[in-house]
Amino acid sequence: MLPEIVAHRGASADLAEHTLAAYELALAQGATGLECDVRLSKDGELVCVHDRRVDRTSSGRGAVSTMTLAELDELRWGGEDKPGVLRLESLLDLLPPGVRLWIETKHPVRYGGLVEAKLVALLARHGLAKPPSKDDSSVVVMSFSAHAIRRVQRHAPRLPTVMLSGIRLTPRIGDYAGPSIERLRADPTYVERAGRPVYCWTVDDPADVLLCRRLGVRFIATNKPAATLEVLRGTVPETEPSR
């Protein structure tokens, strides 16, 4: 069985990350999962922004947590013609049947555990906080923070979770393991030892895609959904991953 493709911030190699256009393109390219990062605005709204500050991805400057939703909406994001930050609720509305949304809560942040509480409340309003089973859930919650994962497990025990990790060891919690591709390159036995499905990020190099398939990674997060699917379905020669 081929790994499932999760579009990292949308088809972000082709279009600006965390824009509806990038997510719509990812779906058109065949992604069966969409990944986003969420932060809280100053007035408590969940918005899809990776960085602590808006400087890199918008026309403005400053920390997301110090700006209201109205102020974030005045900015242009990723060179878009129309201003407006992507709300998590808009992404939930875009989600078609059979496609999962992988939501990463960012930490450390100004508002601490409030982001998980707000997230679970939003999912509950959409009828997504209590899926029939974790395998049937339309949403997966991820974090590099063990405290965040435990908060989600406490607030919404039916939601599947991922404990993200880089090279450093992390607590063995969460329903899926979430290593970086650098971790798998350094330790190819990781997947076998994980004892649970593995979500690997962020995989763009064809050799890395093939490595994930060979090791049995179940979910591949990539900026290039179309290209990654071509590698998985095709006969691209295996080469050493680029460093």
Results as ranks from 00 to 15, higher is better:
52 R>A: 03
54 V>K: 00
55 D>N: 10
56 R>Q: 00
62 G>R: 00
62 G>W: 06
62 G>S: 00
64 V>P: 00
65 S>R: 04
66 T>P: 00
67 M>W: 10
67 M>A: 06
69 L>H: 05
69 L>A: 04
70 A>C: 07
72 L>W: 03
74 E>N: 08
74 E>S: 12
75 L>I: 00
75 L>M: 10
78 G>Q: 00
78 G>T: 04
79 G>A: 12
83 P>T: 04
84 G>Y: 09
85 V>R: 12
87 R>V: 02
91 L>P: 01
91 L>S: 09
92 L>H: 07
93 D>H: 11
93 D>I: 00
94 L>H: 04
95 L>D: 00
97 P>E: 11
98 G>Q: 10
98 G>M: 12
98 G>C: 14
99 V>P: 04
100 R>N: 05
100 R>D: 01
101 L>M: 01
101 L>H: 06
101 L>E: 07
101 L>W: 07
103 I>A: 08
104 E>P: 03
107 H>W: 06
107 H>V: 11
107 H>Q: 14
109 V>M: 08
109 V>L: 13
110 R>F: 02
111 Y>P: 08
112 G>L: 04
112 G>E: 12
112 G>N: 06
113 G>S: 07
114 L>H: 06
115 V>E: 04
116 E>S: 05
117 A>G: 02
118 K>G: 02
120 V>C: 02
121 A>P: 14
124 A>Y: 02
126 H>R: 15
127 G>C: 12
127 G>K: 07
127 G>E: 13
128 L>H: 08
130 K>E: 14
130 K>R: 15
131 P>V: 15
132 P>A: 12
135 D>M: 11
136 D>N: 13
137 S>V: 01
139 V>N: 02
141 V>P: 04
142 M>T: 13
143 S>T: 07
145 S>I: 09
145 S>Y: 01
148 A>K: 03
149 I>K: 04
151 R>P: 14
151 R>Y: 03
153 Q>W: 12
154 R>N: 05
154 R>D: 15
155 H>Y: 09
156 A>K: 05
157 P>N: 13
157 P>Q: 14
158 R>D: 13
161 T>N: 03
161 T>S: 09
163 M>S: 03
164 L>C: 05
165 S>R: 11
169 L>H: 06
173 I>C: 11
174 G>V: 14
174 G>M: 13
175 D>C: 10
176 Y>L: 14
177 A>Y: 06
179 P>K: 10
180 S>Q: 12
181 I>M: 09
182 E>Q: 09
182 E>T: 03
183 R>P: 00
183 R>D: 03
185 R>K: 15
185 R>D: 10
185 R>V: 12
185 R>S: 14
186 A>C: 06
186 A>F: 11
187 D>T: 00
187 D>A: 13
187 D>R: 10
188 P>G: 11
192 E>D: 07
194 A>P: 06
194 A>G: 03
195 G>K: 14
196 R>I: 02
197 P>M: 12
